[in-house]
Amino acid sequence: MSRPDRLLPSATACPTPTAQDSRTARALSRVREGNALAAQWRDAGRRRRAEIRMWKGARSLEDLAVLTVSWLRGDLLWHPNGHRGGPDPETLSLVEALAAANAAGCLTLGSATSLAMKAVR
């Protein structure tokens, strides 16, 4: 007959996590995060090159106006005027008006909000 303690798994069958295991897990996590960031960086580069090709492929002012509408609305991240990531914060209030003007075929090259000036006495 077998001994009762042999029927139960021994303590060594289920090792408890050690400090080495947690260090390995953290290292693997950092490697995965690094790989994800590298993939995002590569994807951003591919997207930027694709957007540059779209701008270079424009053959008319209407083509440029359509691309400008896409950029104003956030569909494109790169603009040949040097702006990246969309219009500047002070232009956000004008985005819909500028997009409408460009969609109508009027290419806008720049914009600026105006300030109401008090009369100087």
Results as ranks from 00 to 15, higher is better:
Leu107Ile: 08
Ala11Asn: 15
Val120Cys: 05
Thr113Gly: 05
Ile52Gly: 14
Gly74Ser: 04
Val95Glu: 05
Lys118Gln: 10
Pro4Phe: 14
Asn102Phe: 00
Pro4Cys: 09
Arg42Tyr: 09
Val120Glu: 07
Cys14Phe: 15
Thr68Phe: 00
Thr68Asp: 05
Arg26Tyr: 14
Val95Asn: 02
Thr108Arg: 01
Asp43Gly: 10
Pro4Thr: 10
Thr12Gln: 13
Ala119Lys: 14
Asn35Gly: 13
Asn35Pro: 04
Ala116Ile: 07
Val31His: 08
Thr24Asn: 06
Trp41Ile: 04
Gln20Val: 13
Ala50Ser: 15
Asp63Pro: 05
Val66Pro: 00
Leu28Trp: 09
Val95Thr: 09
Leu115Arg: 09
Ala50Pro: 10
Ala25Cys: 09
Leu72Ser: 01
Ala38Pro: 10
Leu92Ala: 13
Ser93Gln: 09
Asp88Ala: 15
Thr24Met: 12
Ser2Asn: 11
Pro9Ile: 11
Ala99Leu: 04
Leu98Glu: 00
Ile52Tyr: 00
Thr18Arg: 12
Leu109Arg: 06
Ser111Pro: 02
His83Tyr: 03
Arg30Met: 15
Asp63Lys: 04
His79Glu: 03
Ala112Val: 06
Ala25Ile: 14
Asp63Asn: 07
Thr91Gly: 01
Ala100His: 08
Ala27Thr: 11
Val69Glu: 00
Leu72Phe: 12
Ser93Leu: 10
Cys106Ser: 11
Ser70Tyr: 04
Ala50Gly: 13
Lys56Ile: 05
Val31Lys: 14
Ala27Pro: 06
Ser114Met: 12
Met117Gly: 07
Ala97Thr: 07
Arg46Lys: 15
Thr91Ala: 09
Met1Phe: 14
Ala112Thr: 13
Gly34Gln: 13
Pro89Arg: 02
Ala100Gln: 10
Ala39Ser: 15
Val66Cys: 06
Ala116Lys: 10
Asp43Thr: 06
Thr68Met: 10
Pro15Phe: 02
Gln40Tyr: 14
Ser10Asn: 14
Pro9Cys: 12
Glu90Val: 03
Thr68Val: 02
Leu76Arg: 00
Ala11Lys: 15
Thr12Phe: 08
Cys106Ile: 05
Ser111Gln: 01
Gly57Arg: 09
His79Gly: 01
His79Ser: 06
Thr24His: 08
Ala116His: 05
Gly45Leu: 06
Ala25Glu: 08
Leu77Gln: 09
Asp5Pro: 05
Leu37Thr: 13
Ala97Gln: 11
Arg53Thr: 13
Leu115Pro: 01
Pro15Trp: 06
Glu62Asn: 07
Thr91Glu: 06
Thr16Tyr: 01
Ala44Arg: 15
Ser70His: 07
Ala38Asn: 06
Arg3Gln: 13
Ala58His: 01
Thr91Val: 11
Asp5Gly: 05
